[in-house]
Design a binder for these strands. Structure first.
Lengths: 346, 346
DNA sequence: CGTCACGTTGTGAGCGATAACAATCACTTC
DNA sequence: GAAGTGATTGTTATCGCTCACAACGTGACG
């Protein structure tokens, strides 16, 4: 047989991946019928469908995503922008998002070393170039939220873990309630007041936790000690611990997160202040290791995975148009009592 | 002016994003010239280039990634398959990879709850459907490596953190050397032998660390205690710690990772065995918190970020054809001495 | 027995970019 | 002054798929 004039000759060396036309030829149908089978459209005779499926298997055919995206204008891709995914919180949220999204979307990531205005906008721009269908920003810093306001609304965008009062679609943990709960618990134990090792002021979560702590103190009429601000790291907790250890009236400390609490515990131990006998300590997050600190840490549990799943649900709702307010309700954190806290004896 | 018969009328409501032809029309050139400007091809008059760039800016034009991918057969996308990205190691590697890749690639992720044969193959398949240009597998488990052997070589694939002896292209930390170094250090401090809280046997890293420990013991002629295997978690370290605390001859313990060491420290403290006076403890990884354990942990530092970067370099080399063996050299970990270890007094 | 409806299948026209090639123009160069 | 050279620009085909619509066959119905 002379080669047909249809163009593509079956070259030996270059194993070009099969395309829909190849499947159609092998199955003895038109390319459109193959497309119908692929997209599960009705009105294909079962027998025909079987032939097509067999041809697909035989050729190990895989539809070309780019060609499909070109015509449907859907990429089935979401973008997640996150600050340092090495941290437990962001990593857990990312994990929750990806697990929930994978059955319907690809998840593309952008990890930023800093959530400055420029970085966030660049990341959004990159994703728009990739034609993602939606973007989730794990944006715990005020600067990030500010940047998001400057984003054109050409693509659905959801923020997560950026405080409950952000002016954009978002899901969040009720940091304020969690912090108030922890503080109240310490006051109920008889402590006259509670000191606070705070997070960095540029983070909404940190501010809200400080707010919750302050609210609890005020409604109890307790003294309001100055906040010692750290940066979430154990190192900063350690430094704050040394400062607090010098103040004899400190009997209870609420830390902005568990890592800072770890550093604080070490500083107190070095100074000979026993926990919980002399000082009670509470953390925030309930990282998996918190139960194995010395002593095991009383802390406020955040369900990061659930947060990620809710963010995804909210985003999918926005992509499809119907905006369900339900998934925006803040996730309420829960106090986990361990042995780093005890009743204050006068 | 009557609307031209070129088809697309400028509809008011449906703001269709601008395409290359729109830019060309506005700039008064052909779409090909626009393409040339976009792809930085030579032989475009500076003046023309400026006109085109101005039109691009005015329309806020953004090239359509799908259309480009369709014709170039390049998606500028990489896939990263990882086991539980919540863990510090995988999260750090992912971070390193993404940071290194972003200037040239999009990074799509797949987090698996378990690295079984099926899950890995599914993830690879998903990525092939997305037409990624390469895949990195953060595959620390033997089962994952086994699964990778069954993958068709249609796309470049690199494994990272899967031990140094895996039969596929990979980069890794020299776990064996690190473990031997830690063990030798303890022996040099005068300990007659070193006990080992091991990781799960299904992980190559765990096996290699156990190997290194064993090698060091053997070459020193020391006794070889039975390995107590955990699962990386603080909880398992805690349980092993309770077992070891009952054995009076235990004076030094090498833990497979820092989290297990944390649990072990707590168990020893509960049993009244002081660290380092009664028992010296060494970890592995040097997570940021290790310096703030009680006492601060002597450990073996792994540079996960560097590992991620090397994995990316190796993958890019393979994509472009020239396979540089250089980046395959194992990363040598470093012993970080803190106060959880001390000389053994007879 | 013609017509209509419906289930099933095929045909042709794009989607928005790049690649290959042709066309034009300003200068040399002999 | 004709031909050749290289820079610049335009024209057309093509990537692999989905969409809109046309065409076909079959049975129900008047």
């Amino acid at each position: 047989m002379a080669p047909a004039g249809t163009g593509r000759a079956p070259v030996e060396g270059t194993a070009r991946p099969p395309v829909m036309a190849d499947v159609a030829r092998l199955a003895g149908v038109s390319h459109q019928t193959v497309s119908r089978v692929l997209n599960q459209l009705p009105n294909v005779r079962p027998q025909t469908r079987e032939k097509v499926l067999a041809a697909i298997r035989e050729l190990a055919y895989r539809p070309n995503a780019a060609a499909r995206a070109l015509v449907t204008r859907r990429t089935s891709t979401l973008g997640v922008i996150s600050f340092d995914t090495t941290l437990y919180g962001p990593a857990s949220m990312l994990y929750g998002i990806e697990r929930a999204a994978r059955h319907a979307y690809f998840v593309s990531i952008a990890s930023l070393p800093a959530l400055d205005h420029r970085g966030v906008l660049d990341a959004v721009d990159r994703f728009l170039g990739q034609a993602v269908e939606g973007i989730i920003v794990i944006a715990p810093q005020t600067s990030a939220v500010a940047a998001l306001n400057g984003v054109p609304a050409s693509v659905p965008l959801v923020a997560v873990g950026c405080g409950t009062k952000a002016p954009i679609a978002s899901v969040a943990v009720d940091n304020t309630a969690g912090a108030a709960r922890a503080t109240q618990y310490l006051l109920d134990l008889g402590h006259e007041t509670v000191h606070h090792a705070g997070g960095p002021g540029s983070w909404l979560d940190a501010r809200e936790r400080t707010d919750g702590w302050l609210q609890a103190l005020r409604s109890a009429g307790a003294a309001e000690p100055e906040v010692l601000a750290g940066d979430w790291s154990s190192r900063s907790g350690y430094e704050i611990g040394h400062q607090l250890a010098q103040m004899p009236d400190v009997t209870a400390v609420f830390c902005a997160n568990d890592h800072m609490a770890l550093g604080l515990l070490r500083a107190l131990a070095e100074r000979g202040r026993r926990v919980p006998e002399d000082v009670s300590v509470v953390g925030f997050d309930d990282i998996p290791e918190a139960a194995y600190f010395l002593p095991p840490l009383t802390t406020v549990r955040q369900d990061f995975g659930e947060l990620g799943r809710r963010a995804l649900r909210l985003l999918v709702d926005r992509i499809s148009g119907h905006d369900s307010a339900g998934s925006r309700l803040p996730v309420v954190p829960e106090l986990v009592v361990r042995s780093s806290t005890t009743r204050y004896r006068h």
